[in-house]
Write a protein that binds this DNA or RNA. Structure first.
Lengths: 153, 153
DNA sequence: GTGGTTTAGTTGAACATTCAACCATCGGGG
DNA sequence: CCCCGATGGTTGAATGTTCAACTAAACCAC
C-alpha cells in the first residue's frame, strides 16, 4: 500500500536549506582555519579536546569514540595518525585485555593549547558574534532537543 | 603583543557542544540513510537536486558548485562519478569554450525521484518532528543570519 | 568448564574530499 | 593586435571516512 509522503511545506523547505547552507559553510570555515593554523582537521581537534578533559588525559578507545562522536573504525584510523604525529600514545588496558587506552602526550597537549585560542576565536567570530543572546539560547535548546531526539530513537 | 582570547562562557560552551553533537548526528544519520536507500552520499544528492531545479535541468559547473555549496575540485570529481553512474552528462558550453555544462539525465531524474520521498521523510522524522513550530522559525532565522554573516565576510 | 554470543578494537579496500599545480580560454589595457 | 591577469575547469596525490570482515577476549548460560 502506498504511503503518502509528508513533503516539506515552504517554510520547512526554507528552514532546511538555510540550515544546510549555514552549517556547511560554518564547519568548512572552521575546518579550513584549523587545518591552516594547527595542521589538523576539526575531527582530530575534537579527539584531542576530549582526551585533554578526561581524568589522566586518557580514555578507552570506545569511550573516546563516543565522546568525540566518531565511529570505532574512524577513531582507530585517526588515533593511528595522531600517534604518528606524536600527539597521542596507545597503552594496553590493565583490566580488559581487549582494551586499548589512548592518552594525550605532553606534546599533544602543547599543540592543543597552542591551537585552542585561535579556534575559539573562530567559533566566536563565525558563530556567536552573529547571534543575539536570545538566539544563542534558542540554538542551545534546539540542539539539545535534537541530540536527544536523535540518540534516543 | 599578546591579545587576550575571548573564551567561551559556560552557556556558549554548552551551546557550541550541543550544536556540534546534534548537527553531526543529524547529518550522519541522513547520510547513512541516503547511502543505504539511494546508493549515494548526501553531497551527491544535493547536486542532483540542484540540477533538477535548474532550467533545462542543467547548469554550468561553477554555478552548480555554488548552488550545491561545493568546491570546484570536489564538484569535478563528484560529477565524474555521477557521470559514470549515468545520472549526469557533461556537454560543452556553446558561449564559453572553457565552460562545461552538467545536465541531469532522465535516469538521474528517475533515481532522484525515487530517493526523494524517503529522504524527505528522514528530514522530517529526524529534524522537524522534534521541534515546535516556534523552534523551526527560530532555526530558520538563526541559519539565515549565520549564512549571511559567513558569506558576507 | 564448554560453547555461543556479545564487546573491543583493528584492518584493508573502496570511496570522498582537499590542496596545489596545471592548461586553456576569456577579457581588458596599452 | 598582443600581452597579461583573471576565470573555468580538471587532475593526481595526499588525506579522511566508511563499510564489511576479521581477531581476540570477555561474558553468560547451562
Amino acid at each position: 500500500m502506498a504511503v503518502m509522503t509528508r513533503w516539506l511545506d515552504p517554510d520547512e523547505q526554507r528552514t532546511w536549506r538555510a540550515y544546510l547552507a549555514a552549517s556547511r559553510v560554518l564547519m568548512d570555515t572552521l575546518d579550513r582555519e584549523l587545518q591552516r593554523d594547527a595542521g589538523m582537521p576539526h575531527a582530530y581537534y575534537e579527539i584531542l579536546v576530549q582526551l585533554s578533559e578526561a581524568p589522566g588525559r586518557q580514555l578507552r578507545m570506545s569511550q573516546l569514540a563516543q565522546a568525540a562522536g566518531s565511529s570505532r573504525s574512524r577513531l582507530s584510523h585517526a588515533v593511528a595518525r595522531l600517534e604518528a604525529a606524536g600527539w597521542v600514545r596507545r597503552e594496553d588496558c590493565p583490566t580488559d585485555r581487549r582494551g586499548q587506552i589512548a592518552l594525550l602526550t605532553d606534546e599533544g597537549f602543547a599543540t592543543l593549547a597552542a591551537a585552542a585560542p585561535g579556534h575559539v576565536e573562530g567559533v566566536r567570530r563565525h558563530l556567536f558574534d552573529a547571534l543575539s543572546p536570545a538566539q544563542v539560547d534558542q540554538l542551545r535548546r534546539i540542539s539539545e532537543t535534537l541530540a536527544e531526539h536523535l540518540t534516543g530513537s
